[in-house]
Amino acid sequence: MWLRKKQEDDAFVEQIQSYQADLYRTAYAFLKNKDEALDAVQEVIYRAYRKRKQLKQQKYTKTWVIRIMINYCQDLLRKQKRVIYMENVDSTSNQANIIQHLSLEMAIEKLSNSEQELIFLKYFHGLTYPELSEYFQVPQGTLKTRVHTTLKKLRYELMEDERGESNGAK
């Protein structure tokens, strides 16, 4: 009995482990710092493990653990209310590309926690409407409206941003 339970637990850890890169990317998008992102992965795996009985079905594991990560990062940022320090960026690496997205990310940061979550699940992790609808038990129409409203808010924030730097790029 005890042995079988141990095996199940190991299988759970193994499954979560297979999402470690997704978790790291999500954490990095929020925290912009390798060490903090690594710490976040550690903490989130620990939390996921503790809460594993709340997970209803195995097929939702990935979405579920990513949501834990999003919440963890939001929580951390809210507590710290901090300035994000970019690491030294090697301009030949892909990190340079990511910097291009700063204004987009700043606009995302202005959204509410649940709107941010929706954007991350839908766009960053590419979940489809049927998948989101099944996970949240909410009709697709409701989700579409919600995404639409969120995108509108995002556009508004981005426009604000561009107005702010009227002599900016292009």
Partner: peptide, 30 residues
Amino acid sequence: EEGKLEKWREDYQDLPIPDQDLSDSVRKAT
């Protein structure tokens, strides 16, 4: 916005992943 978000996702797909460090984090968590 959707296009921007798509590009955002793609660029993050290429983010260098510190595999060794990540394995350490997972080990510490377990």
